[in-house]
Nucleic acid binder design. Sequence first.
DNA 1: GGACAACCGTGAACACCGTAAACTCGAAAA
DNA 2: TTTTCGAGTTTACGGTGTTCACGGTTGTCC
Lengths: 238, 238
Amino acid sequence: MIAPLRQPENRRDRVRAATLAEIRQTARRLLIDRGEQGVSLRAIAREMGMTAPALYRYFANHGDLLTTVADDIFGDLVAALVAARDADPDADVVDRLAAAARAFRQWAVEHPREFAAVFARPLPSLTGDCDTPNSQQLSRLFFELFLELWQARPFPVPADGELAPALLVQLRSWAEETIGLPIPVGALYAFFALWIRLYGLVALEVFGHLQYAVPDVQPLFDTAVAELAGRLRAGERP
Amino acid sequence: MIAPLRQPENRRDRVRAATLAEIRQTARRLLIDRGEQGVSLRAIAREMGMTAPALYRYFANHGDLLTTVADDIFGDLVAALVAARDADPDADVVDRLAAAARAFRQWAVEHPREFAAVFARPLPSLTGDCDTPNSQQLSRLFFELFLELWQARPFPVPADGELAPALLVQLRSWAEETIGLPIPVGALYAFFALWIRLYGLVALEVFGHLQYAVPDVQPLFDTAVAELAGRLRAGERP
DNA sequence: GGACAACCGTGAACACCGTAAACTCGAAAA
DNA sequence: TTTTCGAGTTTACGGTGTTCACGGTTGTCC
């Protein structure tokens, strides 16, 4: 008896997975070239030769679909960052970190609508649906790079006493959950300080809040990355 | 002949201004307690005992109304910051700057939907309608505080040679437009570095992108402000 | 092979939405 | 007093998310 090759699932399950993928991809395309307004259930269905209610066989509601698409976008973003990080595997840790940071900005600038859809979701802090799998992977990627950096070229970080006690316990428990590695809590603080600067600069640019002073943010970004990289290389605190 | 007291305008103009204010205020309330989705022309009109098309006498379209409301929100935010800055007029510049920063975060945390509506507009970088009057005032407020700080306690800033040339000319022309004061371009760079950190931290918190590691951001924020204030007070570079 | 259940997709319907055009009516202007 | 003008209504069009009842199709089990 010949086992069914490469068809681990039902035929029906396969076509279901296929149309599900097509839905996500179609929604993605609509988001890119018509904006968040343009990705409506009817538009997706129309684009696929279906009717809108059929989509409810795949998603509980419109918001669920958008959340899934957002996670797909995160996946693409992470993939772009991984590619940038590994473009030159022999490079310095600092260079690889800087490359990832540059890739983050470049992706954001080239995909502003996706960036907005992902980083300014309709208030996940109110709805609570923030921890999609790939969003975790993004910070994980940067954090792994940071860990590598820290082990290769440690730099002075605030002592535990300089951090608010409540912050100390939060960072400690987070470190225990994600890594077993013993690392000073001050280093975690330094990581978030770096991430905050990267995100802040990119978000301000994409949302247009720097245009009034710096119409072209590229040189500002380059200067900031160069400054931080220089400090890291010199063993100073970024 | 008795001049009409305290009625500088037409009667009609006055009632127009009144209903216009009521529209903005109603939209604002709807935004606060139903989210951006809930502030529809029909809902506003219903709330005011009108019909939706009447609103077109006051705004060109739905987007214009939202933009106006966003500017109103900016106005409130600026007012809150001014109040915080001037709460203790005898305080140190560093303390007043820190107070304004704290007020910024507190306002954002207490008004997440307004913060999102204002700081994650539907891609102003694509539509171009970014420079509402009050949004300018926000950065102006922080910049004025920074200028005062710089004059009271200057600190080392990057030399012109350390900045990308393209950044140099942008910052120089911006400084000439907004202030005549001769200030090193490196100081402007330092200002934006500070603003980027403040915005990045607050936006990450409000958009829920720190919850996975730091469920309560307050101590992280306090630590960051304390660290920067300490450095500024010591005449170090923040 | 046939019966049965699970599932996918459709069509119609409901309650909304932004927006346009024609219209009424009261108040300001002539 | 007559005319003009502007605020607001009614009606209508096309769009939206979502529900529900209904056919086919497909997989499963006897």
